[in-house]
Amino acid sequence: MNTPIGKKIVLTTFLLGTVLILISIIAISAGSSGVHFWETLAILAGKTNPDSATATILYQIRLPRVILAAFVGGSLALGGLVFQALLRNPLAEPYILGISGGSAIGAILAMLLGLSYFPGVTIFSFTGSLLVLAFVTTLAGTTMGNTMLSRDSLLLGGVMMNAFCAAVIMFLISMTRSFQVQHILYWLMGDLATMQKGQLPILLLVLPCFVIIFILARPMNLLLLGRETAAAMGINVKSIVMLLLVITSLMVSIIVSLSGLIGFVGLVIPHIFRLLLGPDHRLLVPSCLLGGASYLIVCDLLARVLPSSGELPVGIITALIGAPLFIVLLLRSRT
């Protein structure tokens, strides 16, 4: 038989964890005022005391931003993984149930009201996505009566929700004066530049979500085989599906309220790891978490470093790199 799954999980987690740490240090040291890799490592380890300007840049600006990128990337990749399994649809991504639409409307309203980015926009966008989540789950629950949450009604409910929200968003933008439009567009494309140190504690809220999703990794494997087969092998399908749906949506809502709508990470990272590691979620959950984190840190680094002045929204980079990367992997897996 194969290597026991426990060993594989430890090995992959260790490898991807090492990659994540290395990438983080590179991302913290790179930038317009570059600090050498080893020097950064020494400073972070507390071996050298940096001058105050370097300390400010590293601790107040770059480190929080790298942490945010890691949490956002990991959560979005994990969210995509869960929704692809739950809906058994390869096109599913973390925003598919309409979370993106709801939070975008919330965020745009907050910006139009002239609220500060934090906590104003964050709270509005979180509220927006919760309202959508409540609506979509109720819809899915009631249309199916006492039977299980149907994946088709969930999917359609989410798509309709997103379409409706897109119309509202377009309406709001069309009514907006021009200087605000760029703010809104940056938010819609996903932007980590607005990160402040004070926001970091909020990120801790997603940690329990990670744990619960990892515990439910095996039931997710069985759900891939169909809901009746999963039930026949001892899974309480209705409660597991509902729990995964709510936990994952909450996680994504928290993340989106801090980072805006960063696309593509949640779609492509799960597919990449599925191609590399196979369909077992006990392996995919930690891999997507760490891999998604590393990927978004790299993309954010490029978004900061590539333009000669200013920054690109990171959402542009994620798709620009992710799409070709995925196609290459797809072609290689066929041969």
């Binding site: 515990i215 085989l225 169909g226 009746e228 087969t229 092998m233």
Partner: peptide, 30 residues
């Protein structure tokens, strides 16, 4: 069952050991 889902690339070994599911602990490790 009458219909068997084969869309996801689980191996034969993966599939057979899934039968242990109702006997496994909370983390689901065999």
């Amino acid at each position: 069952p009458q219909h068997i889902e084969v869309g996801f690339p689980f191996t034969v070994a993966d599939t057979v050991i899934m039968g242990r599911s109702p006997h496994l602990g909370i983390l689901g490790m065999e």
